[in-house]
Design a protein around this nucleic acid. Structure first.
Lengths: 228, 228
DNA sequence: TATTATAGCGAACATTCGTTCTATGTCAAA
DNA sequence: TTTGACATAGAACGAATGTTCGCTATAATA
């Protein structure tokens, strides 16, 4: 959702963290002057200025002219959890690491054998109840409209389950060695050849005669598209 | 677990509920005057008095002399959930009522002015952090492939925000009176005509010369596709 | 009836709070 | 060096906000 953006000042990180901690402790956000006192600078304008930076970075949202009108965004929370040993998500939620982008023509950044939130700049929060097992899930952001035949749009987020094998008919992220291309298709093992079927039923399948050219990168378990 | 205690006034219950809802929507508690405006009594002292009652009843906690220094207690949340038909979902989650199906050629089952979980056989659970305001959200399951030009598939779930008006470029559920057809398109108001732009960039827009033929049913805020 | 407690109303006050303006210091690029 | 962007700093203004005091109305109780 948001690139790294400009690096945050020490003070800005301190402020961001304080907003979170204050909220946890008191149940409402801090005022500008309270933040100032906490970070050792009792000067509202400095805090106001840094809050504006944080807002530009997409880490917080503000309601102008309303006291304590500060709200941590998802990105803000993700930033904090990334820079912290452990910020446990609320019960019932699961934070799925957003590991990168999926672009046709580039290999998928597949996670190493064990992977956690470490190193993920962003996470996607979902209800844990949706998935039976959340341990091997990761998320990728789709870049470009090359997967429009899979009914997947630029900016969509796909939730993947990390596996090397898929059942017939399951939608998978496939790396085609010869074409050097990544694609999302339904995979059918038909004897010696592989049929890659687009999700869009009006489009024709691709047949790969050499199964070793097909490398399964993971199984698509969910597609999420946000519209503002 | 808790005696009834002194019965709460209508107004006190209203205030309690508003504190909860305001917090959900804005991320911070309301000020006394904001509560006053919401319950139709713009007099701070009245609210202040009732807040004292609520505090004595153990339903809220307050921080004296601090703006928006109000916090719902466990008992307060329990009181709200007890006086509500639905059950309050776990913290961090929001249950969005799945109100029905969206089928081209049939009108959308639009919720009445006030709607809650009542009557919804199913709900969709999502992380509350995804949405700023969850009070007017509902979900529909897409039936058929008639909306494939919006990159929406049979079985997809669309999360809608109930509104009659959309900004230029927003994706909306539109009921076309003359065609008797429901469709999901990006809406552009271009002078006297309306342009309905499919999400699939390779498809051409539809132009409606009579805006009164276009009836906005809601705004699409999210599309979710689950794959088994 | 008189008493008491509670809810509601209005005005005023002191503090808190967000914002704006100006000024200073720092650092990197031109 | 100069320039510009940025973080910091101080002061002041105006609006928002919590609180208090006085008052009225209603209902329950002695």
């Amino acid at each position: 959702m948001h690139a790294d953006g400009p690096a945050l000042t020490e003070r800005q990180q301190e402020i961001l963290r304080y907003i979170y901690e204050f909220g946890q402790e008191w149940g409402f956000p801090p005022s500008i002057r309270e933040i100032g006192a906490a970070v050792g600078t009792p000067h509202p304008s400095v805090i106001s200025h840094n809050l504006r930076r944080l807002e530009e970075a997409g880490l917080i949202e503000r309601e102008p002219r309303r006291s304590r009108g500060i709200r941590l965004t998802e990105a803000g929370l993700a930033f904090l959890s990334a820079s912290t040993t452990g910020m446990i998500p609320p019960e019932g939620l699961v934070s799925i690491p957003l590991l990168g982008e999926i672009v046709a023509g580039e290999p998928i950044p597949v996670p190493s054998s064990d992977f956690s939130l470490m190193g993920a700049e962003e996470t996607v929060e979902l209800a844990r109840s949706i998935f039976r097992d959340t341990s091997d899930l990761y998320a990728l952001r789709v870049r470009g409209n090359s997967m429009i035949d899979a009914l997947i749009h630029d900016g969509d987020i796909v939730i993947m389950r990390h596996t090397r094998r898929v059942e017939n008919g399951e939608m998978a992220a496939v790396w085609l060695r010869d074409r050097e291309e990544t694609t999302l298709k339904r995979v059918y093992w038909e004897g010696k050849r592989v049929r890659l079927q687009p999700a869009n039923p009006s489009m024709k399948p691709i047949y790969i005669d050499d199964p070793s050219q097909v490398e399964i990168q993971g199984k698509v378990v969910m597609v999420i598209r946000r519209l503002h």
